[in-house]
Design a protein around this nucleic acid. Structure first.
Lengths: 207, 207, 207, 207
DNA sequence: TATGAATGAGCATTCATTCAT
DNA sequence: GATGAATGAATGCTCATTCAT
C-alpha cells in the first residue's frame, strides 16, 4: 500500500525506462541518419517499443530532439562549471593568452561529445525557428560566461564595449571549431587554433 | 542556314522559359517554406507547368537548389570582382582598418541578396554532404581572395602563417554576418561589426 | 492468464482479417486484371482498407502474390497427398496406363482451382527471377513425387535414368495441361490427353 | 525527277534507317531489361532518335515487340525450311529415332538465337491475349510441319490420331527445351534430351 | 501507460502520348 | 518524317498520428 516516494513504483519505473530507451534510440538515429531521415516509427523500433509509446512520451520527433539537446546542454553546462571551478581562471596572475587558449580548448572538448548530433542540430538552427531560438539563448549564455571570466582582468583589457567584443569572440570560436570538428579538416587545425587564439588575445588584451 | 544561333528556335526558347520559371518558383518556395517543406509538385504548380516538366529539366529538387545556388554564387563572384576592381584596395596607401572594414562591408552586402535562401542553404551545408562540399569550396575561394588582397600589404602584416590567419578571419566574418543577417539581431549590429573589424585589424596589422 | 491462446485477442484478430481481405482482393485483381495492371492502391481499395494497411502487411505487391501462391501450393500439396493416400497407387497390381492416367487427371484437377491466377504466375515464372526459382522448386517437388510413385513399379519400368525420365514426363504433362486449361482449347482436349497418356506409358513401362 | 523504285530516295532511306535503329534498340532493351521495364523513351534514347520518331513508326511498344517477333519467326521459318530441304528427312530409309533426334536438335538450335528475348515473349504469351494468339498459331505451324514430316513414314507409325499426337509431341519438346534453354539447367540436359527423344520415338514409331 | 493496426494525405518519380516546329 | 518539350494521371511507397484494446 505504501509506496516510498523516493523509489518509484514499478509502473513509474517502467515509464522512465521506456522514455530512456526512446531518448537513446533518438540520439543514435538522429546522429546516424539525420533528423529528416528519422521517423517516429524507426525510433520506436530501435527502442524496442511500440509507436504509440513514442507519442505517450513526446508530442513529435522535434520535441524529442529538443529534449535530447536540452539534456545535452545541461550536461555541458555542468562540465564547464566544473572546469571553471577547478582551474581558477579568475586568478589575476593568469596570462591573457593562456586564458584564451583554455577557453578555446574547452569549446573544442565540448564538441567531442557527439559531433554528429551537433551537426544535425546546427542544421536545424538555420532552418527551424525553435532551434534558432535555442541557439540564440545558448550563445547568450556563453557570452555571459566569458564576460564574467574576463571581468577579473578588466584592467588589462583594451576593449570598451565588452559585451559586443564577447559576442564576436564567441561567434569566432564557434565558427572555427565547427570548421574543424564538424566539417572535419584536421589538417591545419592546430595552426588555425593558434591563429584564433592570437586574434582574440590581441583583440582583447592590452598586452 | 536559316537559324540565327543567337536567337534560339522556338522549341529551345520555350524550354529555356520553362526552366527559368522553375528556377524562379524554386527560389521563391525554398525561401518561403524551406527546402524540406518544398516538393517538386509545389514547384511545378508555382511555375505554372506540369510536374513532368520539372523532371524534364532537373533530376530532383536537390539538383534544382544546387543549380540555383551555383548561379547565385557566380553572380556574387562577379559582383566581388567588380568591387575589387573599382576600389583598388591594393593601393599601399590604404589604411589597414579601412581595408578590413571594406571586406566586412562587402560580405554584408552579399548577404542582402536573398537571405532566406541563404539560410536554407546554410542548413543544408550542415546536413547534406553535397552542400557541405560546396560550402568548403566557397570558403576556400574566399580565403584565396583575401590572401591575394593582403599580399599587397605584406610588410605591414604581423602574421607568419597567412593562410591559417585568413581562414580564421573568413570564418569569423561569416559567423558574425550570419548572426546579424540570418538570425537577425539588428540591435547591436554596428557595435559587433566594429568589434569584428577591430579584432581582425589588430590581429593582422602591425599598426 | 486470461488470454486463451487459441482465440487471438482483438488486435490480432483484426489484423488477420485485414490480411485476409488483402489476400482475397489480391487474388481477385491479379486474376482479373493481371499482375502488372494491378497496383497496391487498387488492391487496398478492393479490400476496403487504406493503402497504408497494405504496406503494414506486405512489403509490396510481389510479396503479396508470392504469399498467395505459397498458400495455394500448400493447399495443392495437401490435396495431392490426400489423393495418393486414398488411391493406393503403390499397389503392384495397378496397370501402368491407369497410373499414368491418374497422374494426368490429378494435374488437370489442380489447374481447375484458379486458372487465371495460375496463368499470371506462369508469366512471372518467365520474367521474374524469384518466381522462376519457385517454379523450379515446384517442378523438383513434382519430380520427387512421381519418382516415389514409380519406385513401386521398378521391375516393370523400361527406363534406366528414372530421374531424367520423370523430369521430362513432368514437363510434358505440365505443357499439355497448360495448353488445355490456360490457353483453353477444349476441342481435342480428350484426344490430346489420351495421346499424352499413351506417350508416357509407352515411354516408361515395359508393357 | 525520276526516282528508281529499287533505290529509295534519301527521305525514304532515312525513315528505314530510323525504323531499323528502333528495332535494334528494342531487341536490346527488351532482352536486357524485360518488356515491362522498357519504356518508349528508353528505346528512343538507345536508338539515338527522338521519342516522337518512335511513335511515327510504331503505335506503341507492344507493336514494336510484335514486329520484332514476327521478323524473328520469319527468319526461323526460313532456317527450318532450309534445314528440311538439306536433310531430306522424308527419305523412307531414315530411322525413326534419328528423325526425332533431328527435330529436337532443330528446336534447340532455334532457341539459341536470342534466348532472353524468347523468355520475355514467353511471359507475354501467358499474360497478353495478342501474344497468346501468336503463340497458338506458331504452335499450329509447328504441328503442321511435323505432321508433314511424319506423313512420309505413315506405315511405320503406331498412332491413329496423328494431329493430336503431334500436338502433344510439339508441346513436350517445347517444354523440355524451355527448361534447358530458358531456365538454364545445363546439368542433366543431355540425359533429358535423350529421354525426350526416346519417349517420342516409342510413342510414335512401331519400332 | 503500453500496444500496434489502421489511416489517407502526401511524396518523388515515371509513363505513354501529343503536337507545334 | 523528325524533333523533343510538355503533359498530368498514375505508381509505389512513407509518414505522422489516432485509438481501441
Amino acid at each position: 500500500m505504501s509506496i516510498p516516494p523516493s523509489a518509484p513504483a514499478g509502473k513509474q519505473r517502467r515509464a522512465q525506462e521506456t522514455r530512456a530507451k526512446l531518448i537513446e534510440a533518438g540520439i543514435a538515429l538522429f546522429s546516424e541518419q539525420g533528423y529528416h531521415q528519422t521517423s517516429s516509427k524507426k525510433i520506436a523500433r530501435r527502442a524496442g517499443v511500440a509507436v504509440g509509446s513514442f507519442y505517450n512520451h513526446f508530442t513529435d520527433k522535434k520535441e524529442l530532439l529538443l529534449t535530447i539537446h536540452k539534456e545535452h546542454v545541461a550536461r555541458i553546462h555542468a562540465m564547464v562549471a566544473e572546469s571553471l571551478a577547478a582551474a581558477d581562471f579568475g586568478a589575476s596572475g593568469v596570462h591573457g593568452r593562456k586564458l584564451i587558449g583554455a577557453i578555446i580548448h574547452q569549446t573544442l572538448r565540448l564538441h567531442d561529445l557527439s559531433p554528429d548530433l551537433h551537426r544535425q542540430i546546427s542544421a536545424l538552427v538555420y532552418s527551424d525557428p525553435d532551434f534558432a531560438e535555442m541557439g540564440r539563448s545558448e550563445e547568450a549564455h556563453a557570452v555571459e560566461q566569458i564576460m564574467a571570466l574576463l571581468e577579473a582582468h578588466r584592467d588589462r583589457l583594451r576593449v570598451d564595449d565588452l559585451r559586443s567584443a564577447c559576442q564576436v569572440v564567441v561567434q569566432a570560436i564557434e565558427a572555427v571549431v565547427h570548421g574543424i570538428k564538424i566539417f572535419g579538416q584536421p589538417e591545419g587545425a592546430d595552426a588555425q587554433l593558434d591563429a584564433l587564439g592570437d586574434m582574440i588575445h590581441r583583440f582583447l588584451f592590452r598586452d
